[in-house]
Amino acid sequence: MSKAGMLYIERDTLFHRLDGAVKLLMLLAWTVIVFLFQDIRVFIVLFIFGIGLLKSAQLPWTRIRLLVWVIIVFNIFNSLFTILVSPAYGSEVNGTTTVLIDLGYEVLTLETVFYILTLSMKYMSLMPISILFVYTTHPTRFAGSLNRLGVPYKIAYAFNIAFRYIPDLKKDFLSISNAMQARGVGMARGEGTIVQRLKHYAAIAIPLVQSSLSRIDTVANAMDLRGFGKHAKRTWYSSSPWGRVDVAVVIICAVVLAISITARVQGFGTFWYPF
């Protein structure tokens, strides 16, 4: 985790220049489209397109590698878990049964295997756009973007405060837990039963929450003294007016979303099984 609590990497590409609110809209539209369908062909198209966009943002592989692995490992576990618990679920969805292996308590079907592939691809198709958003949007732009999309500014500002104080709180947390461990309070694996360890976490919680509460007071004072909440609106230092590219991206998103919804309403895009 970077120091500001987000993973922004500075570059000068189309994506970095796009307004945060536009990127957020794009992320939302993309997510809705993924939710609409259950068709692996759609996901493959989205995935390949997403990878193309990701390439254009020139993010170094070493920095994003970990997140990619996280999602792959998640998919492997999720798939194995699904096979174990619902090995015939694909048949239920598709209405046909092609037995692959008899597991004893249930049969594993080819439909399920294909269903798992589809599901994994669905998750994978969300990955590039998410990474793109996270790595190309500076945290300072995030709150202003939300506000521009209609989120009340006070709620949007809470995001800023969270980003701002995560590193400080992390420092507090580490120093408190270190001091506790030096007094013999065990929290690591093998240092007491789970309930004991949980209770030891509770011991940290008290000083951590107490110091957070006093921080809430002083930060709120500081904000009041500098006029936070004075007006029904506020401006954002880091925001800039939408350029032609921004408007174009929003229009493209709206059009693609409209087409997708129409297609779905027409009945296209339910679980697709080629065999």
Binding site: A158, I161, Y165, L169, F173, S212, I216, V219, A220
Partner: peptide, 25 residues
């Protein structure tokens, strides 16, 4: 009533929740 203190409480609460989500036993 979202006064300043409430806004800060939301932000700090979110920071703690987000931070501690990295910990799982």
């Amino acid at each position: 009533n979202l006064d300043t203190k409430t806004v800060v409480a939301i932000g700090i609460g979110a920071a703690l929740y987000g931070l501690l989500n990295w910990v799982s036993i």
